[in-house]
Design a protein around this nucleic acid. Structure first.
Length: 937
RNA sequence: GCUCAAGUGGCGGAAUUGGUAGACGCGCUGGAUUCAAAAUCCAGUUCUUUCGGGAGUGUGGGUUCGAUUCCCACCUUGAGUACCA
């Protein structure tokens, strides 16, 4: 009976579905383990072989943990709101829900063929109203919260209102808008409701504010910072401009410090933690106030080097700084205006590309040094960014290279405040070696002490204070899109009101066209039924809006990351209709133990999800502040494109080895027409595209050899390999093994279908090991010593490999084991049965089939992992290589239980050793852990 | 520029509390089987060699009896970030 993988795989996939083999138990005595993949966005193109890589790895781990006696939660779902379905809707008029539904069906079909152990009973979709009901609910919780800096956590907004009513806001320590005005309890109580709402909005964790946003005219929406790459949109590559709009924002900046600190408690890769740290961008220093001479104005600057404050010789403002117009003197007005105009014209991209050109202009105004009272010229320059810190810097040319270059360029003085350092050529930036000089009370102090002293003096004299700055900006949460979560928000007198959670979900209304309205409103502006009736608590027609009981609803929708920021918690209790998830469920499952996904989400999804989790932790809805204990980024699988060479101006194609003799153009052709030795099957090529039908070919050794190029898998390079085809031809088990065998999980690596024959042959040999011709041939014969040795070293290695996520090396281990057992003619059940359990996480279908042939009627999935017994590996003696001066000469066989001295004595007395030494006395004999012996003569 | 990761045969890659480098697979070469092919099986495959050996894990140093592994400097590649005061 041959290895009929298609039949076997279909059979067991049906079995697992029918018996719900992988359904996670709610009430279990077993310890829990939660393995999660980043859920996919179901695109129209379907899966290629790169997509399942992470899923296969997590599946192996999930199946392994099940063998190890854990109650495993391994769910899957779809991040199904998003731009592509909407773009498709704009083009075709088809409702995105239909497109999404079709894409999901295709994804599911493809996923099912690979034999994953997902608990599909917990499937969720972010675009399902039963799911986004809870996305809306969390939004309301955020709206009803503020961040108390004293308690260092989020608190209910009602607490804040109570404080305002009894003592005003002067003593409230909160993360809020910068320009909140101070008021007393009496003033608060005298305010109108609308005035109070306006103030509260400045404290809420999600708030409405006029912000400068990244507007993409082509996509008709705003984008978050992480959705922009090199100044153009990540999706589509369209230009992005700055624009002021009223938008919902998330006060993620409140959590900057906790998001930074939390990184130390989780087992994520250093690279990923590093990019989150960069993104949060903490810098510690001081805020210093400079007063402007002859003007009623002060300039706030942020500096990380308050120790160098006596080295200030000028100040620089960003061209966009609000004081520029006010302080510029009449004489300089024209020049300044020209400069501002010139910088505004330069796109973000140009400014980024051109970092070397020094430009700036003097305003004519002077500030006063807080300590020396000397005048300091105020310049503007585009190297100062309006968006960071205060948009102004105190320039210390001796201690900062950019300030130094600026000063040199414009002939500004460079006073030196460092002891024993020459600043004639460049700034001195080494903090460790800093000793301050020429600085009054800071003289002779080292960096750390000087910073402290400077801040102390600034605070004492009222010119500044110690301050920590973060680069992390609040996240814009509105999108001018249709296919996203609607906000549970309606407006009364222009102020946002939350719909009571009891009436959620607020479902997307039907609209005719998925484009912005003629007046530039978002697509929801086209809906006829988009008003909220506060009496009936339901969505009603816009014609009923009376601003008494019926009000207009929010027209924006939520961004793509909303639904993915808490889905891992929802999987714990996916069908709960009374809550996002029950206390009981989150207290049992707690957090994701292993999360696998791409590193491209480092500063997007993975940061926002941590933010929401910290917030939910503050409010007591979840028991842990970090949602994923361990995270692994799987590397991308790249395509190996095939290239043919067309002789210029002809329809003749020359084989790779001969192309040097011709002038050629490179053309990519479908990789599926090329065999393992890079030979192109010409008959297939002529079928593929009409232009090749009567093409001529210049062959080498009768073959057409293609060129190869490793690049991203993409339709346009014709290098996409589809998993369905691989499953059909070689089977899902071969696909799974091969994806793991390609190389380390976290590395990017090229796909080459040719190599799959190696693992496929292994599966055939595995099948043969359990059969003798047609008959199943496992016996009750006692295992030999060698068989047991093979089994136990395999158990040890595979267990170590899985624990270390080195799935590639255990495939090799299986191959060695099967080769050895075949050579040893092993038929013993005592060895072949546990071997199946080892292999089953990797190749579950063949393992189940052989398992059932052993006579078992239940799935192998719940069988215990075999126990490693070291005694099977112990030998009585070992061959030791003997080296002289580091060069191995011969080996000696010695018993294992010899002491170090006995080994030395035996080796020295050995005939060959004597010959080598030839009467000389060795300087040293080295015995290391009874392993290697070296004799230095 | 800064931060991080990595450089091993024709290719993907093994091997690190320092101990016989190149496991395993692909490809290639030869053989068996076959009318033939596919499939399968067996043997070989780092380079070099005058067949004794010699060289060899990006380059140059260092520590060590011994270094792919540890340390220093440099080169290259990839990823992230980018005038962050």
């Amino acid at each position: 009976m041959s290895y009929d993988f298609n039949t076997i795989e279909a059979k067991w996939q049906a079995y697992w579905a029918e018996h719900q083999t992988f359904k996670a138990q709610h009430n279990s005595e077993l310890p829990k383990y939660y393995v999660l993949d980043m859920f996919p966005y179901p695109s129209g193109a379907g899966l290629h072989v790169g997509h399942p890589l992470g899923y296969i790895a997590s599946d192996i781990y999930a199946r392994y943990k099940r063998h190890k006696g854990f109650n495993v939660l391994h769910p899957q779902g779809y991040d199904s709101f998003g731009l592509p379905a909407e773009q498709y809707a704009i083009q075709t008029g088809q409702h995105p829900a239909i497109t999404t539904q079709e894409n999901i069906a295709r994804y599911r079909q493809q996923l099912d063929k690979i034999g994953f152990s997902f608990d599909w009973s917990r499937e969720l979709r972010t675009s399902d109203p039963n799911y986004y009901k809870w996305t809306q609910w969390i939004f309301i919780q955020l709206f009803n919260s503020w961040y108390d800096t004293d308690a260092d956590k989020a608190r209910a907004i009602t607490d804040l209102e109570a404080v305002f009513a009894s003592q005003g806001n002067a003593r409230v320590q909160a993360v809020c808008d910068e320009d909140v005005s101070v008021f007393t309890a009496a003033e608060w109580n005298a305010m109108s409701s609308k005035e109070q709402q306006e103030i509260l909005l400045q404290y809420r964790l999600t708030y409405l504010a006029e912000t400068e946003v990244n507007w993409c005219p082509q996509l008709g929406t705003v984008l978050a910072n992480d959705e922009i790459v090199n100044g153009v949109s990540e999706r589509g590559g369209y230009p992005v401009v700055r624009k002021k709009m009223t938008q919902w924002s998330m006060r993620i900046s409140a959590y900057a410090e906790r998001l930074l600190q939390g990184l130390t408690t989780i087992d994520w890769t250093d690279a990923l933690k590093e990019s989150q740290r960069n993104w949060i961008g903490k810098s510690v220093g001081a805020q210093v106030t400079f007063s402007v001479k002859d003007a009623d104005a002060t300039i706030e600057v942020f500096t990380t080097r308050p120790d160098t404050i006596f080295g200030v010789s000028f100040m620089t403002l960003a061209p966009e700084h609000e004081l520029v117009a006010q302080i510029t003197t009449a004489a300089q007005k024209e020049e300044v205006a020209a400069y501002i105009e010139a910088t505004a014209k330069r796109s973000e991209r140009e400014r980024m590309a051109d970092v070397k050109t020094i430009s700036g202009v003097f305003t004519g105004a002077y500030a006063e040094h807080p300590f020396t009272k000397e005048p300091i010229p105020i310049w503007i320059g585009d190297y100062v960014l309006a968006g960071y810190g205060t948009g102004a810097v105190m320039a210390v040319p001796c201690g900062d290279q950019r300030d130094y270059d600026f000063a040199k360029h414009f002939g500004i003085a460079i006073p030196n405040v460092f002891e024993g350092v020459d600043v004639a050529e460049a700034a001195f930036t080494d903090k460790e070696k800093t000793v301050i000089a020429n600085s009054d009370f800071l003289n002779g102090l080292r960096y750390k002490k000087a910073v402290k002293t400077a801040i102390y003096e600034l605070e004492k004299q009222g010119f500044g204070k110690g301050k920590t700055n973060y680069r992390l900006r609040d996240a814009v949460f509105s999108r001018q899109r249709y296919w996203g979560e609607p906000f549970p928000v309606y407006y009364v007198e222009g102020m946002p009101q939350m719909i009571d959670a009891a009436h959620l979900p607020i479902e997307l209304p039907a609209i005719e066209k998925y484009l912005p309205t003629e007046t530039g409103e978002p697509p929801l502006g086209r809906a006829d039924q988009w008003a909220w009736d506060t009496k009936q608590h339901k969505v009603v027609g816009n014609d009923q809006i009376d601003h008494q009981t019926v009000f207009p609803l929010e027209l924006n929708t939520m961004p793509g990351w909303a639904g993915s920021s808490f889905y891992f918690n929802r999987y714990m209790d996916p069908s709960n209709t009374a809550a996002a998830f029950s206390k009981e469920a989150v207290n049992y499952w707690k957090e994701v133990d292993l999360y696998i996904g791409g590193s491209e989400h480092a500063t997007g999804h993975l940061l926002y999800a941590r933010f929401w989790q910290h917030f939910l932790y503050d409010t007591g809805y979840v028991p842990v502040p970090e949602f994923a204990k361990k995270l692994i980024n799987q590397g991308m699988i790249l395509g190996t494109s095939a290239i043919v060479y067309r002789v210029s101006g002809t329809n003749t194609y020359v084989s790779k080895g001969l192309k040097a003799d011709y002038e050629v153009e490179e053309l990519r052709v479908d990789v599926n027409m090329v065999n393992a030795s890079d030979e192109l099957v010409l008959a297939d090529l002529q079928q593929w595209q009409p232009q090749f039908k009567d093409a001529e070919f210049i062959l080498e050794d009768g073959k057409y050899i293609v060129g190869r190029e490793v690049e991203k898998m993409s339709k346009r390079w014709f290098n996409v390999v589809n998993p369905d085809g691989v499953c059909e031809q070689y089977g899902a088990d071969s696909l799974r093994l091969y994806e793991m065998f390609l190389g380390p999980l976290e590395q990017a690596k090229p796909w080459n279908t040719a190599g799959i024959t190696g693992v496929h042959n292994f599966l055939k040999r595995l099948w043969k090991l359990y059969h003798n011709g047609e008959a199943f041939a496992v016996t009750d014969a006692a295992p030999t010593k060698d068989d047991l040795k093979t089994l136990h070293k395999t158990i040890k290695k595979v267990e170590e490999d899985i624990e270390n996520f080195s799935f590639n090396t255990s495939v090799s281990t299986f191959m060695i084991a099967v080769n050895e057992l075949t050579a040893q003619k092993c038929t013993s059940k005592a060895v072949l049965e546990p071997l199946l359990v080892l292999i089953s996480p990797y190749a579950p279908h063949i393992a189940e089939e052989l398992w059932s042939k052993l006579g078992y009627t239940t799935s192998i999935a719940n069988v215990d992992f075999p126990i490693f017994e070291a005694s099977h590996l112990v030998e009585s003696s070992k061959e030791y290589p003997i080296s002289f001066n580091g060069k191995t000469k011969f080996t000696i066989e010695l018993p294992l239980d010899m002491t170090k001295d006995a080994i030395e004595e035996t080796v020295m007395a050995h005939e060959k050793t004597q010959k080598q030494l030839a009467g000389r006395t060795p300087k040293k004999v080295i015995v290391v852990l009874g392993r290697i012996i070296n004799i230095v003569g």
